[in-house]
Design a protein around this nucleic acid. Structure first.
Lengths: 219, 219, 219, 219
DNA sequence: CATGAATGAGCTTTCATTCAT
DNA sequence: CATGAATGAAAGCTCATTCAT
């Protein structure tokens, strides 16, 4: 107490924690992500998180208000990453074909999903256990994506490549198809193969991921 | 009651008791359904349910083992109803076109959804807050539907009407598209219009519900 | 429903119950005894008892106020039987020796124990799980027996056959010795030998049962 | 503790916390002991215990898994204390007489009983309300003591000081006699005299506690 | 007499959150 | 910043008991 201690740690746990990670906050995020994936969001207690993060219970509340708050942070980061992966379709002459561009978008999205697998599962599998607030964030995200697709459909109709249709409904269905395929592939990596891991997103999968939704809406 | 009963019997007493039993049970199911829809499954406590049903706490446990048990009962009934709405595609000559038959199936499914709206929302919106066990029941349902679609695709390929493709993936996507559309329409009836209620499933909606998924997989 | 039914039973259970037993009350006592022995008094619920007796829940309360009440009835019957087995020591000349008479008393007590085994276990094994009230009944019984022994010691001291001692304490110890031996032998019949049953009270056992306590107090 | 600590350490914060921990735990043990004695184990609720300890409900579960767990802790401590009080009989020449040694053992046991009165009552009065696990612990304890006595009898028979007999049965009876006397004296301190307290174990009592059981088995 | 559906008090246990150190 | 003991509201579930039939 009186001595000049230059090192803050009192035991292995703490020291390990400090040296190993950038910050307590990211340790908590990491731990939350992992536990959420492993036990589901709402079967994960704050205790599970802090234990996994190797910090004290009270520390959690220095960084987050509650469980939904962490989840919100995770989801926000994930959504930002997905946003970053999506490029607007370039319709200027000389640009790659729209189909090509869509495929590239989906390829980048798949990469993001692989990097953020834990959170992706949460967002894609439906708002499983996303108590109120957080579910709303996810919902907002999907609405925005949907609006983007809707706009793209309008453009496509203008260009005469998209068939006449109820754009909103078709956007929903196209998105639903993609989401279902991605969600299933994500889920597949969960329990079955513990050794090899990952059937993952290969080129054939990607091809169908583009083909099916487009056939439904192209002329 | 009025008749002169001179001998002990499995009398009105028993039958009345039985109908009381039946009605309490269905009151509980009704209440559970309503609360689940209103607050989400896992934010609904046993207390919420019994209060809504107007019975005592202990009464609940005369009929169900726990919350998942009620949910299971609701989901089972719903699944049975959906099953009852689906007819196998009849490929004998003279039968209506498969597209026609698919549209009829979907129309009947929509009717079931309207009748079982509360439970439908739970099953369609994804395993939102479905504590472990219950989520499994819903998951099983979807797996079975998926298998049915997969089989249908195989038949279709045999007949040369379905394009060559990864059947499993296409089944997932077709189902995802339909599910997304239905789910959204169901959800639409939720909060916004409390007076008029229901944008519901009209013929245009139904038409697109058939068209979009089929275009993706037909030759 | 409309047919003239001349038999009062509504199902096998009821008819079986009525024909098999003398009265509902003794069926309940029987059932209680058995369950108490099998699960312990306080792990036995009213439900266990009525189920074992094959009667309805409410019927129980036509005959007993509560669990302790049944236990009380069982214990009372047991105590009466024990009392009936004990004869005052006859000190008139020409009577068998006191030791002989004590041995006979104990022999008769052993017989009672065998007949009332279920209740005997409860009374002898100590107030195991005897919720307050019931424990008191058992306690009263032992106090009375103790008083009897105490009196006998006084008589014995008067006759000069019992050594001078703290009669109360010696009575307690003599009783404790006998009780321990009987209790252990009773307990022995419980779980171990399921096929042969019963090591039970043989003559050697009885001999020591008399000898040991008496040596401690005779001159 | 006194040494100059110049390095990070399990510092005052921690040690203070530890002593708080320790004191809460022992407050709970104390409270449990007292309530168990006053109301009987199984009529004592967790609520009774925490109220008596002056802590919140949840605090209990920081230290014990359930009621049986506390009881187990109490019983274990008691049994250990009793064990510590018993010395093997020393038969080497020059040692005090066996009777003397036995008396000393019993005297020490009586002292332990007085110190652990509350728990002693539970263990001695029979496994009252000792749900499953804990009852087993007590049972095991008595079996071990019994085995010790049995061995001692064998030795005594070898030395020719113990009469020929069924050693097991005699051990049970001797133990039963002692246990009954101790148990009764313990119980005596319970309700009657709340002011003066304690008739307790005096030398006369102790003398008879040795004499009676020994007379039954010595030649 | 007999029934069994209904009751609700009461118990155990969990867990998000606070706060003194 | 970090800690972790303490809190207490809230949930789940059981079971003795009542009462209309």
């Amino acid at each position: 107490m009186l001595s000049g201690r230059s090192l803050p740690m009192t035991d292995g746990r703490t020291s390990r924690a400090h040296s190993r990670r950038a910050s307590t906050r990211s340790a908590l995020l990491r731990a939350a992500r992992t536990r959420f994936r492993a036990q589901g969001v709402h079967d994960t207690s704050i205790d599970d998180i802090v234990r996994a993060a190797g910090v004290a219970r009270g520390t959690f509340y220095l960084y987050f208000r509650n469980k939904e708050d962490v989840l919100g942070a995770l989801v926000d980061a994930f959504i930002a990453a997905i946003r970053g992966a999506v490029r607007r379709i370039d319709t200027t002459p000389g640009a790659p074909s729209p189909t090509e561009q869509i495929r590239d978008n989906l390829r980048r999205i798949c990469e993001v999903l692989e990097r953020h697998e834990d959170v992706a599962v949460i967002v894609f599998m439906g708002p499983a256990g996303l108590d109120g607030r957080s579910a709303a964030a996810v919902e907002r995200f999907w609405k925005q994506i949907e609006a983007m697709v809707c706009d793209a459909l309008a453009v496509g109709q203008g260009l005469g490549v998209v068939r006449p249709c109820n754009r909103q409904q078709v956007a929903i269905m196209a998105l639903g198809a993609v989401r279902a395929a991605l969600s299933r592939t994500l889920a597949a990596g969960d329990e079955p193969t513990h050794g090899s891991r990952r059937p993952r997103f290969d080129e054939d999968f990607l091809e169908e991921l583009v083909t099916y939704p487009l056939r439904g809406l192209l002329r």
